[in-house]
Design a protein around this nucleic acid. Structure first.
Length: 558
RNA sequence: GACCCCAUCGUCUAGUCAGGUCCAGGACAUCAGGUUUUCAUCCUGAGAACAGGGGUUCGAAUCCCCUUGGGGUCGCCA
C-alpha cells in the first residue's frame, strides 16, 4: 500500500449489458466519494465467468455511466476516461497475477485442492436442505491422504481450490455504514477460490485486485455484506491491508421486492409460463435451446433486444430497471443522478435538488442511511418536471431534439427544423419528460384524412352540448379562419379573441376547445395557437371541415 | 432452515452516534380550494409516522433487551 491516505474507490461490475439503477447508485457513491476527497475512481470489469461470455454488448454500461456524467480515472478506455497504471482492468487478463497468489496460499497450507464434482455437491446440499440443516462443505478433500491427492492429480481430475477457513476465530468486519458485524467461528465453510477451469472466483479476484489496485474504500450494495467476512479472511491470509467497507442498502421496487436486473426476465418468464407458450415466438430471434434454458433457469437473462421484442409480442410493458430505460423514458441524466443520490443519502442542509458538482462537494459516508429504499417513480418524475421547467428554452429544444433523433425519429422526419423547434417550445411548459410531447403529439403525425374523433365525454361536452354547441361555433368560425392569410400565433390570438366576443360572450374556452378537438382528435393539445401554427393552415382547416362532416357520428341524434 | 442486516407519515427522508429545544421537520404522492383556452403547471390549505412490549433515566424517536415485520446471503454467479 503506497499511500494509505489517498482515497481510491472502484466500481466493479460484471459485463452483463446495461447498468441498472442499483449499480448506478453504487457507482455514483464511489465516484462522489473519490471526488469529494480528491481521490481516484476506478472501474474494473469482473469477467471471471467464462460461461457468461462477455462480448461488446456486455460493456454497454460504460455508455450509461458516461450518460450519467460519471467519469472514471482508471479502467477500460472509453472516450476520455480510463487507462491507468494498475491494470489490466479486466480480470480475465489478470490470470497470471492470481496464480502467483494461489501458490502462496497453497504453500502456506491456507488453501487446498478439492475434487468433489458440482453434481456431488448439489446432491449434498439438497439432502441438507431436506433435513432442514445448513449445508457446509465437509472438508472431505482436506483429509485426503497425500498419495490419493497425487494420484488424482496424475489422473488429471478436475478440481477446485478451497480456502481453509480458520475454525477457531470470530470474524469481525468493520463497516462504515453498519458498524461492527461479527460472525461466530464455524459459520463459514471452506469456500472455493479457484474454479476447475483455473479462473479465480469472485471472492479471490476481488481481494487480490482491490489490494493490488490500492483500493482504499469499498462502497457496494448490501448483498455483498455476507461475502465480506470471506474477503477479510483472504486479506489476512495474503498479508493485505483491509480496505474500509461501506455497505449501502438495497433499492426495492414499490412492491417491496428487490429491484433487480433480472426483473424483466422474471416478469416475462412468469407470463410465458402462465400462457403456456413453449416455443420462442417468431420474430423475437430467440433460439429453441436458449428459450428452454431461459425458462428453466431463473439466473439466465435474455439479451436486451430479445427481451424487448418478446415483451412487444406479449404486449407487456417492461419495468424501468436499467439506466438506459430511464433515458429512453425521457428522463434527464442529471435528474436521475440527483434522485439516485437521494436514495440512501441526504446532504446536511436538507436540500433535495442539486447537481453533480454539489454531490461531489458534499457527499460523505457518514450520512448514508442503513435502511433500504423503495424506488419512487413519482418523485423522480416530479424532479424531472422541475428541471425541465427551469431549463433555458434553447437548451430544452436542442436536448429534446437530440433525444427524439435517438428514440422518436419520426418527429424529426415529419417536421422541418423550424416547425420542430416550435413543437418543442410549445411543449416545454407542460411536459414532465421528453416522452410526454411524443406520447400526446401523435395527432401531428397522422394524415388529415385519417384523423378520428373518439366519442368520449369531454369531446361530446365541448362539441355537442349547449346552445349554441361547439359544432355550431365551429361552423361559424370556419369561414373566418379560412380568410386568415397571416397564419401566426399573434394573428390567431387576436382572431380568436374576436371570435370569442362574437360567438361566446368573450369566453375563450368555448371557441378554443372545439377547435382543439377538431384538429387534434381529442381534448388535449399544446396551447391552441401553437397547435394551429405547427399543424399549418391547410391541415387545420381540413381537419375542422372533416370534423364538421362527422358531426352526426360524434353527436348521435337525441 | 441457518447466519447476517434493517425498522420515523403511503414513499424518500431530517432528527438517533454526543437523550430534553420534536404533542416529530421537509420533499414526493393524496385530498380540498384557487389561477389557467385543454392537459400539464402554478398558488393556498388539510390529513398523514416514531412497528409492539419491556427496561435504563427526572426525561427516550433517540440507549439496552425481547417480540413482530421486512430484506440479504447461504453457487466451481458476481
Amino acid at each position: 500500500m503506497a499511500d494509505s491516505s489517498i482515497v481510491r474507490t472502484r466500481f466493479a461490475p460484471s459485463p452483463t449489458g446495461h447498468l441498472h439503477v442499483g449499480g448506478a447508485r453504487s457507482a455514483l457513491f464511489c465516484w462522489a466519494y473519490a471526488r469529494r476527497h480528491g481521490g481516484r475512481f476506478l472501474l474494473r470489469i469482473e469477467d471471471t465467468d467464462q460461461k457468461r461470455s462477455s462480448d461488446a454488448a456486455g460493456l454497454a454500461f460504460l455508455e450509461d455511466l458516461a450518460w450519467l456524467g460519471i467519469d472514471w480515472d482508471e479502467g477500460p478506455e472509453h472516450d476520455s476516461c480510463g487507462g491507468g497504471e494498475a491494470g489490466p482492468y479486466f480480470q480475465s487478463q489478470r490470470l497470471d497475477i492470481y496464480s502467483e497468489h494461489f501458490e502462496r496460499l497453497i504453500e502456506s497450507g491456507a488453501a487446498y485442492r478439492a475434487f468433489e464434482t458440482p453434481e456431488e455437491l448439489n446432491e449434498a446440499r439438497k439432502i441438507a436442505r431436506a433435513n432442514k440443516q445448513a449445508y457446509r462443505y465437509d472438508r472431505a478433500s482436506l483429509n485426503l491422504p497425500d498419495q490419493t491427492i497425487q494420484q488424482y492429480l496424475d489422473e488429471g481430475r478436475p478440481h477446485v481450490l478451497r480456502f481453509k477457513v480458520p475454525d477457531d476465530q470470530e470474524i469481525v468486519v468493520q463497516d462504515v455504514v453498519l458498524g461492527e458485524i461479527r460472525l461466530a467461528p464455524g459459520e463459514l465453510e471452506d469456500f472455493v477460490i479457484r474454479k476447475a477451469d483455473g479462473f479465480p472466483t469472485y471472492h479471490f479476484a476481488v481481494v487480490v485486485d482491490d489490494a493490488l489496485m490500492e483500493v482504499s474504500h469499498v462502497i457496494r450494495g448490501q448483498e455483498h455484506l455476507a461475502n465480506t467476512s470471506k474477503h477479510v479472511l483472504l486479506q489476512t491470509a495474503l498479508g493485505f491491508e483491509h480496505p474500509a467497507y461501506a455497505h449501502v442498502s438495497l433499492i426495492f421496487n414499490p412492491d417491496g421486492s428487490k429491484m433487480s436486473k433480472r426483473d424483466k426476465d422474471k416478469l416475462l418468464r412468469a407470463s410465458v409460463k402462465e400462457r403456456g407458450i413453449d416455443s420462442p415466438p417468431s420474430g423475437t430471434g430467440i433460439e429453441e435451446d436458449a428459450w428452454a434454458s431461459w425458462l428453466k433457469d431463473k439466473s439466465i437473462q435474455l439479451p436486451s433486444e430479445q427481451l424487448v421484442l418478446l415483451a412487444e409480442t406479449l404486449e407487456i410493458e417492461l419495468p424501468e430497471i436499467d439506466v438506459a430505460d430511464f433515458e429512453k423514458a425521457g428522463y434527464l441524466p442529471e435528474v436521475l443522478l440527483n434522485y439516485l443520490a437521494l436514495l440512501g443519502w441526504s446532504p446536511a442542509d436538507g436540500r433535495e435538488q442539486f447537481d453533480a458538482a454539489f454531490i461531489c462537494d458534499n457527499f460523505d459516508l457518514d450520512r448514508i442511511v442503513k435502511s433500504p429504499a423503495k424506488f419512487d417513480r413519482d418523485k423522480l418524475l416530479a424532479f424531472n418536471l422541475d428541471a425541465l421547467q427551469v431549463m433555458g428554452e434553447d437548451e430544452f429544444v436542442s436536448r429534446f431534439r437530440q433525444w427524439c433523433q435517438l428514440h422518436h425519429p419520426e418527429y424529426c422526419r415529419h417536421f422541418d427544423e423550424s416547425t420542430f423547434d416550435h413543437f418543442a417550445r410549445a411543449n416545454k411548459e407542460r411536459c414532465k419528460s421528453f416522452l410526454d410531447p411524443v406520447k400526446s403529439g401523435g395527432f401531428f403525425l397522422v394524415d388529415d384524412e385519417s384523423l378520428e374523433w373518439p366519442v368520449i365525454k369531454p369531446v361530446r361536452k365541448a362539441l355537442c352540448n349547449g346552445e349554441p354547441s361547439g359544432f355550431d361555433r365551429l361552423e361559424a368560425m370556419l369561414p373566418v379562419l379560412r380568410e386568415i392569410d397571416d397564419w401566426t400565433v399573434s394573428t390567431l390570438e387576436s382572431t380568436f379573441e374576436t371570435l370569442a366576443q362574437d360567438h361566446a360572450e368573450g369566453n375563450l374556452g368555448k371557441v378554443a376547445q372545439p377547435v382543439r378537438i377538431a384538429i387534434s382528435g381529442g381534448p388535449v393539445s399544446p396551447p391552441i395557437y401553437d397547435t394551429l401554427v405547427i399543424l399549418g393552415k391547410q391541415s387545420s382547416i381540413r381537419r375542422i371541415e372533416r370534423c364538421l362532416e362527422n358531426r352526426d357520428t360524434i353527436c348521435p341524434a337525441g
